[in-house]
């Protein structure tokens, strides 16, 4: 009897056991790679969603942002954010420029924090503290006439900032077929 159950167990193990083949000879899991620890995920995960998820602690002001901007950003973007030589950052909605800047084109304020923290300054990406990035974000939103000069920008206030260009964005509706869109 014991032998019978042992054999039955082995047969079932073969049929349904962990990592066993599907009909196509493809296992449910290969078991390659290692489980990521919470700590290593936290170290890499710098993404920020439009609802503010992912924004770090800290805060910034327009005043501090202006000082950091003049020191670390103005050489490429111009002292008021319009002169270049690199991308123009300042163009309040309604400005006559054709340039796509923060005020007249960017649909989400959180993107400003995310991109600045990831990629700026160009010659030293990833070097700014959370507070510095919040301050720069505040200054650029102010320069684009989106917030007033006293507004403090942090994880709670940034996702609340409504960007003027957001209302223009629509999802791609090209679908192939004979119609040109």
């Amino acid at each position: 009897m014991r032998t019978f159950f042992l054999i039955l167990f082995l047969v079932l193990l073969l049929a349904f056991g962990r990592g066993d083949n599907t009909a196509a000879g493809w296992p449910l899991h290969f078991g390659f790679g290692r489980i990521a620890t919470t700590k290593e995920i936290a170290a890499l995960n710098i993404s920020i969603r439009p609802d503010g998820k992912g924004l770090p602690a800290g805060s910034g002001t327009v005043r501090e942002g202006r000082a950091i901007y003049l020191m670390k950003c103005a050489a490429c973007h111009g002292s008021t954010g319009v002169e270049g030589p690199q991308a123009r950052l300042v163009a309040p909605m309604g400005d006559t420029t054709r340039a796509k800047a923060i005020g007249n084109y960017w649909p989400y304020a959180t993107t400003l924090f995310d991109y600045t923290r990831r990629a700026m300054p160009y010659n030293a990406p990833g070097s700014l503290s959370a507070g510095e990035v919040y301050s720069l974000t505040a200054f650029l939103l102010y320069a684009n006439k989106i917030i007033d000069s006293e507004k403090v920008i942090n994880a709670a206030s940034l996702p609340q900032v409504v960007m003027p260009a957001k209302k223009f964005f629509v999802t791609d509706d090209r679908r192939g077929g004979p119609e040109i869109r």
């Binding site: 439009p50 993107t111 995310d114 223009f168 629509v170 999802t171 791609d172 509706d173 090209r174």
Partner: peptide
């Protein structure tokens, strides 16, 4: 949900008619 990164908002989006801006235009026609 999408993360609305710089490359899918301020870049790789295109103005179309009536002041609209087309986003997430993935396929190459």
């Amino acid at each position: 949900q999408p993360f609305m990164t710089r490359e899918e908002t301020s870049k790789y989006t295109e103005p179309i008619k009536d002041g609209k801006i087309r986003q997430f235009s993935f396929e190459i026609d």
